[in-house]
């Protein structure tokens, strides 16, 4: 299952709730302001690094770029994907849960 998060983890608890309620091995895609969760050395980055539920993390390149971010600022185990990659993920997963 694919989960998308589009809110900053500091603005809303969408990220936190997704971490709590997504099933193990889920794919988690950070988009729009959700991409701020992908930055390394923050108060939440450890959670993504430890990754106890073995999630696969993705972040949308266009939204990173728009916010002045690139791979150098990201947590290493997060994969950067294009819009094409977004579409592919959506197709690959039977269901998508959107954490607004």
């Amino acid at each position: 299952m694919l989960h998308t998060i589009n809110k900053s983890p500091y603005e809303k608890n969408s990220f936190e709730t997704c971490m709590r309620l997504a099933a193990a091995e889920s794919s988690i895609l950070l988009i729009e302001d959700g991409v701020y969760a992908a930055i390394d050395n923050t108060k939440i980055s450890e959670l993504i690094k430890e990754n106890p539920s073995n999630f696969k993390f993705y972040v949308l390149e266009a939204d990173l770029k728009a916010r002045g971010l690139d791979k150098n600022s990201l947590i290493p185990n997060i994969e950067i994907i294009s819009y094409k990659g977004f579409v592919k993920l959506t197709v690959e997963n039977e269901k998508t849960q959107t954490w607004l």
Binding site: L21, A23, K95, Q97, T98
Partner: peptide, 11 residues
């Protein structure tokens, strides 16, 4: 709740 979300078909 995790299981409920996983078991649903349309969210």
């Amino acid at each position: 709740m995790k299981k409920l979300i996983t078991a649903s078909e349309v969210i």
